[in-house]
């Protein structure tokens, strides 16, 4: 029988040393809501489990110069209760709060959701739209990667041997900005995104002056759809602009036919969600609140 080592890292340096020592068989344990399930299903057999929940920097939310730094292992429920974060990045928070059920929310973290590298991860399209960066530390020191470049395929990331994700940084927010995340699931709960769409907007009056769009579950990795953002910038979200942005989303899709949705359906829904999420983000930027789903 294979032995599994369980180690608790006291600090980030310690975690990196343990990870490097595990020789490619190390797995980070944050909430464990993916790792433990995968181990039970037999799809993951780690040599060493490195628990990072005792590292303060990895489980807390800090304000930085105008922005936020979210520890990678911070539970989704903690993020959902952070008043200021919720006000500034409602789309990011609502996306993170869709990772799993209520019970899962107490453990699941955005860092875990990102490192699981599922194209259908709920938090990632919103983080992509937000322009978040991933703070990585490893044997070679620290580095930063835009979130949309972090995953390289289903289940694959750009982490090098011994590297771990420490936190996620959200940039400073100009006035008149907000965001939204919508996903399509056939049910209302306990489901996985057939398509997920995050939209972040900065408005000046009625006009969009900056936009970013993230799209999930329509390609091997979550996409940053720059053409959709271009279609929105300068517009007042008129039907034509929304239609053009929706078309750009659909055009960016490279989905598969599977048990969760067809190519045709995913391609169409990408556009539908873009329009709806953009409308919510605009309302929020204008001070009209939309409760999370």
């Amino acid at each position: 029988m294979t032995e599994i080592q369980y180690k608790v890292a006291k600090n980030i340096k310690d975690a990196c040393i343990l990870m490097a020592a595990a020789d490619g068989k190390g797995r980070i344990l944050a909430g464990g809501t993916d790792l433990l399930v995968q181990m039970k299903a037999g799809t993951q057999a780690p040599g060493t489990i490195i628990d990072v929940k005792k590292i303060p920097e990895m489980v807390t939310i800090a304000k930085t110069k105008g922005g936020f730094r979210i520890g990678a292992a911070t539970p989704a429920a903690v993020i959902g209760e952070h008043e200021e974060l919720r006000k500034t990045w409602p789309g990011v928070v609502e996306a993170i709060n869709l990772i799993g059920s209520k019970q899962i929310q107490g453990r699941a973290s955005p860092g875990g959701n990102l490192c699981n590298a599922s194209p259908a991860a709920d938090s990632v399209p919103a983080l992509v739209a937000a322009g978040a960066t991933v703070n990585i530390q490893g044997p070679g020191g620290k580095r930063q990667v835009p979130v949309e470049q972090f995953c390289t395929g289903p289940g694959r990331t750009s982490l090098q041997k011994g590297e771990i994700v420490v936190s996620l940084s959200l940039p400073a927010r100009p006035k008149g900005s907000s965001d939204a995340y919508l996903r399509l699931i056939p049910r209302t709960e306990m489901d996985i995104a057939v398509v997920g769409c995050g939209v972040s907007l900065t408005m000046k009056g009625d006009t969009v002056v900056a936009a970013r769009v993230g799209l999930g579950a329509v390609a091997p990795t979550v996409l940053l759809v720059e053409d959709a953002a271009k279609a929105l910038v300068g517009s007042q979200l008129e039907d034509e602009a929304l239609e053009a942005a929706a078309k750009a989303c659909s055009a960016a899709c490279r989905p598969i036919d599977d048990k969760r949705g067809t190519i045709r359906y995913r391609t169409k829904i990408a556009g539908v969600l873009l329009k709806r999420a953009a409308a919510i983000a605009r309302d929020r930027a204008n001070g009209i609140s939309h409760t999370a789903h």
């Binding site: 056939p186 049910r187 209302t188 306990m190 489901d191 048990k259």
Partner: peptide, 29 residues
Amino acid sequence: ALNEEYIYNTKGRLENPGFLDYRMPVASD
């Protein structure tokens, strides 16, 4: 009526042997 079905692949293997992808209604539905 709305979601439940056995989905087979071309090899005759069931693709959705779990409650995530065999979609029974949940309370909030």
